[in-house]
Write a protein that binds this DNA or RNA. Structure first.
Length: 183
DNA sequence: AGATTGATCCAT
DNA sequence: TGGATCAATCTG
């Protein structure tokens, strides 16, 4: 097993957002585990990024984004869905990578609830992986929820780049090509 | 295109 | 304290 460690999470946010493509996201629940391969991410970078929750400063919700890299930031959106992010950036610099889509994995000891086709939205990622607010702030180098490199790299030529989804209100930042996906 | 749903945040 | 807003999803 090659679990992503703190030196991975200390890299620049935009680099992490790309590097996470092809990595595996794993949630241990008791003796079972749910696994997905990451296929789409979005980066949220710094106080000036109007699309980021952190752009209005520190609040109880966004405090976690100002913390050290390598923790989970899980929030409820539209009253119904959870979104899972990895906190990046040094302490006091708010940044995170949202996991937008995964390919469910169904081999070995990994369990696989129903869904076989790739998820196509962050709410579905959390529903599949059974991630909710209880996991907010959890250390991603621990043994409950983590990411690992299983040696299946995504070639640079296979990485697509696009504007982020659902952030039309964010002025010049809405045009940043901070969404990454595998073609 | 509209309904859903409730936490969050800012302005009263 | 009230109400607009929201990094989404499903249904029609």
């Amino acid at each position: 097993m090659n679990k992503l460690n703190s030196s991975f999470y200390l890299q620049p946010t935009l680099k992490i957002a790309q590097e996470l493509l092809g990595k595996f996201l794993i949630h241990n629940i008791g003796k079972k585990r749910i696994v997905g391969r990451i296929i789409e991410t979005e980066a949220y970078v710094g106080l000036k990024d109007k699309a980021s929750h952190a752009s209005r400063g520190r609040t109880p919700r966004t405090e976690i984004m100002f913390g050290p890299a390598g923790q989970a930031y899980v929030y409820l959106i539209y009253g119904m869905y959870y979104c899972f992010n990895v906190v990046t950036g040094r302490k006091d610099y708010p940044a995170a990578v949202l996991i937008r889509a995964i390919q469910p994995i169904t081999v070995g000891e990994d369990i696989y609830p129903r869904l076989q086709t790739p998820t196509n939205g962050p709410g579905k990622v959390c529903r599949y992986l059974k991630i909710d607010k209880k996991l907010n702030g959890i250390d991603l180098t621990g043994n409950v929820l983590w990411m690992e490199d299983r040696g299946i790299a995504v070639k640079k030529s296979q990485i697509g780049r696009a504007k982020r989804i659902g952030v039309d209100y964010s002025g010049e930042y809405k045009n940043k090509l901070w969404r990454f996906y595998t073609k």
